[in-house]
Amino acid sequence: MSTTQISEEESQTIVSSPKSIILRISRSNPQTGTAKSFMEFKVPYEKWTTVLDAILEVKKHFDHSVGVRYSCRQATCGSCGMIINGKPRLACFTKIVELNSDVVTVEPMNNFPVIRDLAVNFDRMFSTHKKLKPYIVRDDSEITSKTKEFLQTPEEVEKYIQFSSCIKCGLCNSACPTMATDSSFIGPQALAQAYRYIADSRDKGKNERLKIIDEPHGIWRCHFAGSCSMVCPKGVDPAMGIQLLRGYLLGFRR
């Protein structure tokens, strides 16, 4: 396989050092039946260059047809999740220097259908997320309440605030060993979000959500491998949320 290289004049990266990596990009298109193969590009980098920057350099100079989804470039939108050197990571949040490797391989996330190249389909994750009622459930509203707002103590906020940082990037679902074999498993993303709302003192939908997750492909399929928490780029720690959630079903928590 030949490696394509960017000339110094063309590169967006200001070349102050001769450092470069071989970027291996997975190419596939299930719609046309194009099987997975890798294309290699030699890309210069600086200490601030992210994997997404390197992919965009390739798109700009060599092959604009590389399929990649991205938006905010600051780990907020959750669009650019992919497998980088074997582990699910956000491309915009992973600097090339952190990888300590001369070869960077990027592939689409596992456990999601591939749309093309590095872009995957999030439909199932979003529908599962929606199924678990990701909103405050109660009959009254702030408008009808006497205080015009639902007051919470700082301690009550601490119980769920960590889990509200989820950006739905899907890295946790990609790393989960149960998702690797069970197509019907709810997944760590949705389970952690179920905990986020159940732990919220304003919410009254605990029983409805527990009923949804208490099924054969629900919470009981989690075996606490902890990989979801290892890859989460926002510190959500889905593994903790799932175990605390299971505590409600087992009677350890009320």
């Binding site: 596992n110 456990n111 999601f112 259908p113 995957v120 998702m179 690797a180 074999t181």
Partner: peptide, 9 residues
């Protein structure tokens, strides 16, 4: 089709 890792995961 789902790009699942399967047992190799």
């Amino acid at each position: 089709q789902e790009n699942k890792e399967g047992i190799k995961g």
